[in-house]
């Protein structure tokens, strides 16, 4: 241990001093002999991953004098991104599907992803029926995973909550959140052992993980409706004004505009072309 500590200490000082004489972190770059003739090489593999994934976004600070504005800088993005939602540590769907999972339907994918930032996947993609259905929905904290009081009441701007809505189900008469620890552990174990599983075992595991997922998810009209909304907005802490906006003509009218011509595809996801057909007036 002593030897290890001594080595670490020596390396640290070496890096602070002598390493500068040898290291290639001088600001010199390999200059092309004839810059005009050299063609840029396509970036592939590890370098492409670095460029397209790791380097494509970073957090920078704008020093405005009266304020330090921390923003997420996306390459080629014009508008200032002044908010960063905390990662959802509880949701086991996103560990495979990512935080921006909606992709199939051009017209709806951005809206789906927008809702996914404050509604857990299970809320729309699992239809609880019979004894399982409780019509109870609560907010959970994205960082801790714990059930928390409604963040809406705190006056946060729409969609900026660091919390998501999760449904509750009834199992053997007891109320439990649908993302139970048992399900989280099962999915985590699958990801851990995925490489060593046989193809049959993989299929079995995927089937079990997706067992509850409904082929027909709840759509916009399930919540954005004057009467009988799936989500109990009031219990979730929304004010009357906000509820009126959700079910008002602006939102409902827009949903109709987006969905009326694509309805068959929406209700049967995966069937037919992924490209929406041209609108027919």
């Amino acid at each position: 241990m002593l030897l290890g500590l001594t080595v670490v200490w020596t390396v640290m000082i070496w890096n602070l001093t002598f390493a500068h004489l040898y290291k290639g972190d001088s600001h010199e770059v390999q200059t092309a002999k004839d810059p005009g003739r050299e063609q840029p090489k396509p970036v592939e593999g590890k370098a492409a991953f670095q460029k397209q994934i790791l380097d494509s976004e970073k957090t920078v600070k704008l020093y405005l004098g009266y304020q330090v504005l921390e923003q997420k800088q996306l390459l080629g993005h014009f508008h200032i991104v002044d908010i960063q939602l905390k990662p959802d540590t509880r949701n086991y769907c996103i560990s495979c599907h990512g935080d921006i999972p909606h992709d199939k339907f051009k017209d709806l994918r951005a809206f789906g992803n927008m809702h996914a930032s404050f509604i857990a996947c299970q809320t729309c993609h699992i239809r609880l029926e019979g004894d399982q259905a409780t019509h109870i929905f609560k907010w959970y904290d994205r960082a801790t995973g714990q059930i928390v009081p409604s963040p809406v009441k705190d006056g946060a701007l729409p969609g900026t909550y660091n919390a998501k809505i999760i449904p509750f189900e009834r199992v053997d008469g007891a109320l439990q959140r649908i993302d139970s620890q048992a399900r989280i552990d099962f999915a985590a174990e699958y990801r851990k052992q995925e490489q060593s599983l046989s193809e049959v075992q993989k299929s079995k595991a995927k089937k079990i993980i997706h067992q509850q997922v409904s082929k027909q998810p709840y759509m916009c009209e399930s919540c954005h409706v004057q009467q009988g909304s799936l989500l109990p907005f009031e219990e979730l802490g929304y004010s009357k004004q906000r509820i009126d906006a959700f079910v008002g003509t602006e939102v409902i009218g827009m949903i109709k505009n987006y969905t009326q011509f694509y309805l068959p595809h929406i209700l049967e996801p995966g069937i037919g072309s992924h490209e929406p057909e041209k609108k027919v007036q």
Partner: peptide
């Protein structure tokens, strides 16, 4: 009405992240 939501986003066909959010403030 839509673009105030920080989650309004998609990944485009080239794998590029398209964030459609605009902070009003």
């Amino acid at each position: 009405l839509c673009h105030k939501y920080p989650g309004l986003s998609r990944i485009d066909e080239n794998g590029k992240y398209r964030l459609l959010y605009v902070s009003e403030e």
